[in-house]
């Protein structure tokens, strides 16, 4: 029993010299070097014995609210950067165009099997309109793919697309 008390008493004495790092503290960047195995004679052994693991592998602790804040900041900076580049403005415009752009309602002329000929004329037949919209969606998608292939020619744009 006495030994048990002594054991725990020893580790209750943390106030003497050792100061523990707490997550709220800044990570220590320097440490008290133990020169018993000095670098002159021990080479790699020096780090093996002397360098604390939290210096080699710093502990990163994030507050969730800070993470959100950081993300917003990153988006903001990205936007600013894009605005500085004409090419990227085109990309941005194209991007917003995909969301806001209303494609012309097209009608199919010729046989019902449909060729790829399109026009901007509006057909008053609702049923036909509906079919045409479907076809337009398909074509829009096709256009999107075409755009994508163009973007692939630009590393920057492709990179931007990936981020979104």
């Amino acid at each position: 029993m006495k030994i048990t008390v002594l054991f725990f008493a020893l580790f209750g004495l943390t106030g003497c010299y050792t100061v523990l790092w707490l997550p709220s503290d800044e990570m220590p960047k320097s440490y008290s070097q133990n020169e018993f195995y000095n670098s002159e004679f021990y080479g790699k052994y020096y780090d093996y014995y002397s360098t604390p693991w939290w210096i080699l592998t710093p502990i990163n602790i994030y507050n969730p609210s800070e993470i959100i804040s950081t993300k917003k900041e990153r988006n903001k900076k990205s936007t600013d950067l894009r605005n500085e580049s004409g090419e990227r403005m085109i990309f941005e415009r194209g991007g917003s165009g995909r969301n806001e752009y209303t494609p012309p309602i097209t009608t199919t002329s010729g046989d019902s099997k449909g060729n790829n000929n399109t026009s901007s004329q509006t057909n008053g037949n609702k049923g036909a309109e509906s079919n045409n919209i479907n076809e337009e969606q398909s074509r829009t998608k096709s256009n999107s793919n075409n755009n994508s292939s163009i973007r692939n020619e630009s590393g920057n744009r492709n990179s931007g697309n990936t981020r979104r």
Binding site: T14, Y17, T18, V19, L20, W21, D25, M27, P28, S32, P52, W53, W54, I59
Partner: peptide
Amino acid sequence: FPIPTVRGSL
């Protein structure tokens, strides 16, 4: 398992 410290060792 060394506990991270600002000074000393635990």
